[in-house]
Simulated scan of single mutants.
Amino acid sequence: MLNEKQSIQAICSILAKGGTQLNKPFEADCEIIEWGDKFLLFTIDGFSAEDKFRENDPFILGYNLSVAAISDVLACGGKPLYYSHSLVISKEWDEKFLNEFTKGIKHSLQKFKINFIGGDFGTAEQWSYTAVVLGETDKPLMRSGASEGDLLYLSGSIGAGNFEAMMNIYSDNKLLAPFLNTYKIKLIPRLAESAFIKKYASSCIDTSDGLCHSLIHLANCNQTGFLVENIPYHNIAQKAAKLLRKPVEMLMIAECGEYELLFTVPKKNEAEFLADTEKSFLKFYKIGVLTKDQNFLLKKEKNILDLNHFDISARDFNNVKDYINTLQNLLK
């Protein structure tokens, strides 16, 4: 059976890209098209129950799905302009659930002045959601473009997405009872950060698939390795992982990401970047560097963890807990 990347490669080998498209397959979070004196950004993203977003608060579910879709445009240094979706609701959703879900989407779009332009609707046993976002930029960021020695930065803490997954997968675990209704994760759309970093960044990707997968993808796009340390883990997610006796590194290695921006800054630009960051009142986290050798390494205190074997997908497992146990065993 083909994995996700192999399937996409097979499709792209038949449906060849052309025209004024700038990026190659896997090279950017959006499709980037030359459009007059600017660049048009196009992204389409699908979600379902397998993404492990909690469904106990429909407003937050709608909000988080829309923010997740918008994130691709931000990772390309763009401004989101138009939004469309195809919504297939579960037969279990009632009118109240649907209204709150839609209000969550509306909240994110209004907050950032993005226009909704219509979509499609259906009903099935399980819900699914597909969003289309159009944006523009005068300077597109891609996953490629970085070099050995470029420094790795993050726009925020790591683990919020995998915290959501923990609350979903282990909802019957009594140890997590204090977290289930008390802590509700709302993803943070990094519009200000995106506009700021495109002046300095040599490459960018969002952490939609978790930090580890994003690091590996970024390194592969630039034919480098990486060495990372001092990962800024989400405080509440760390506490939940500890209660479940899961290594904190699971928050960066598992695939339910937090949609932060992971980007590179050339060493020669770092002083100016940091000086302007201080003036902007934005916060970024330096976590490492791209390396010449193509090794994927995480420094933890006095130990070095080899991440080369962690590029595995939950979709390759019949049971998500088998996937979790495999990751946990690799961390031993």
Rank of each mutant, 00 (worst) to 15 (best):
residue 263 F to D: 03
residue 233 Y to K: 06
residue 213 H to D: 03
residue 225 G to A: 08
residue 250 M to F: 13
residue 215 L to W: 02
residue 267 K to E: 12
residue 235 N to T: 09
residue 216 I to A: 04
residue 240 A to T: 10
residue 271 A to D: 07
residue 250 M to H: 12
residue 210 G to S: 02
residue 244 L to G: 07
residue 220 N to P: 07
residue 254 A to G: 06
residue 270 E to I: 05
residue 253 I to E: 10
residue 262 L to Q: 09
residue 219 A to V: 12
residue 256 C to Q: 14
residue 228 V to P: 12
residue 235 N to Q: 11
residue 244 L to W: 10
residue 210 G to I: 00
residue 235 N to P: 00
residue 266 P to A: 04
residue 242 K to V: 09
residue 233 Y to M: 01
residue 209 D to A: 09
residue 245 R to N: 15
residue 212 C to E: 08
residue 253 I to F: 08
residue 210 G to R: 03
residue 250 M to T: 15
residue 247 P to K: 11
residue 241 A to W: 08
residue 207 T to R: 01
residue 223 Q to H: 14
residue 252 M to E: 08
residue 230 N to Q: 13
residue 252 M to T: 13
residue 217 H to L: 10
residue 261 L to C: 09
residue 241 A to L: 03
residue 215 L to Q: 02
residue 223 Q to W: 04
residue 258 E to A: 15
residue 234 H to E: 10
residue 239 K to P: 00
residue 237 A to T: 01
residue 265 V to G: 11
residue 222 N to W: 06
residue 240 A to H: 03
residue 263 F to H: 05
residue 264 T to D: 07
residue 237 A to S: 10
residue 229 E to W: 02
residue 230 N to F: 01
residue 226 F to I: 05
residue 265 V to R: 12
residue 246 K to S: 10
residue 227 L to W: 03
residue 222 N to H: 07
residue 221 C to F: 01
residue 242 K to Y: 08
residue 235 N to M: 05
residue 257 G to S: 11
residue 246 K to N: 07
residue 255 E to A: 13
residue 255 E to W: 02
residue 248 V to C: 11
residue 215 L to I: 04
residue 210 G to V: 01
residue 251 L to N: 15
residue 256 C to N: 15
residue 245 R to D: 08
residue 252 M to Q: 13
residue 240 A to Y: 01
residue 252 M to N: 11
residue 221 C to H: 07
residue 221 C to S: 13
residue 269 N to K: 14
residue 261 L to S: 10
residue 232 P to N: 07
residue 214 S to N: 02
residue 247 P to I: 00
residue 271 A to S: 10
residue 223 Q to S: 15
residue 213 H to Q: 09
residue 230 N to C: 05
residue 226 F to D: 03
residue 262 L to H: 08
residue 253 I to V: 15
residue 268 K to Y: 06
residue 244 L to E: 06
residue 248 V to G: 08
residue 254 A to C: 13
residue 258 E to M: 08
residue 267 K to T: 02
residue 255 E to L: 12
residue 251 L to D: 14
residue 254 A to Y: 10
residue 237 A to W: 02
residue 254 A to N: 15
residue 243 L to Q: 12
residue 217 H to S: 14
residue 242 K to R: 12
residue 210 G to E: 00
residue 248 V to W: 12
residue 225 G to Q: 06
residue 223 Q to T: 11
residue 228 V to E: 08
residue 235 N to C: 01
residue 242 K to T: 14
residue 211 L to N: 05
residue 207 T to Q: 02
residue 242 K to I: 11
residue 265 V to T: 07
residue 253 I to N: 12
residue 221 C to P: 04
residue 237 A to G: 05
residue 211 L to K: 07
residue 222 N to E: 04
residue 248 V to P: 07
residue 214 S to L: 00
residue 209 D to G: 10
residue 254 A to W: 12
residue 234 H to C: 04
residue 269 N to I: 00
residue 208 S to Q: 02
residue 230 N to L: 00
residue 213 H to F: 03
residue 232 P to T: 04
residue 219 A to C: 09
residue 209 D to F: 04
residue 258 E to Q: 13
residue 224 T to E: 04
residue 212 C to V: 01
residue 240 A to N: 03
residue 222 N to Y: 09
residue 246 K to H: 14
residue 260 E to F: 06
residue 218 L to V: 09
residue 261 L to T: 12
residue 253 I to S: 14
residue 225 G to R: 11
residue 234 H to R: 02
